[in-house]
């Protein structure tokens, strides 16, 4: 169907916000092409009449829950693991000039 060439790896890395060096791009292009060729055997199957399975186990759907606040007022805990925080906020590099 398609190949996982170096340019494709680079494009996926950009979409996934992953910095990869040139060696990694080459390496992953080789490996991912091999994996992609292998998974393509799925196209042998005629699945026109098959409903995709999206639940973890057949017969169980997702349940509804009430939309209400049941947690909160724990700013210190939330920010406790932040690499950088100040005055109750996360700090990030400047995004607006």
């Amino acid at each position: 169907m398609s190949t996982f060439d170096k340019a494709t790896v680079a494009r996926m890395a950009t979409l996934a916000r992953l910095k990869l060096d040139d060696d990694e791009l080459d390496h992953f292009a080789g490996e991912l092409s091999q994996i992609l060729t292998w998974v393509e055997q799925l196209s042998e199957l005629d699945t026109d009449q098959v409903e995709p399975m999206t639940s973890g186990v057949a017969g169980e759907g997702l349940r509804w829950r009430a939309d209400h606040v049941d947690d909160g007022n724990c700013q210190d805990k939330v920010l406790g693991n932040a690499p950088e925080a100040a005055q109750g906020f996360y700090c990030v590099p400047k995004v607006v000039e």
Partner: peptide, 19 residues
């Protein structure tokens, strides 16, 4: 952060999944 934080197996799966 993600380039340095994730190891090769994790990166490979993120790339495959994104694709």
């Amino acid at each position: 952060s993600r380039g340095e934080g994730f190891g090769p197996e994790v990166k490979r799966r993120i790339l495959m999944g994104t694709y």
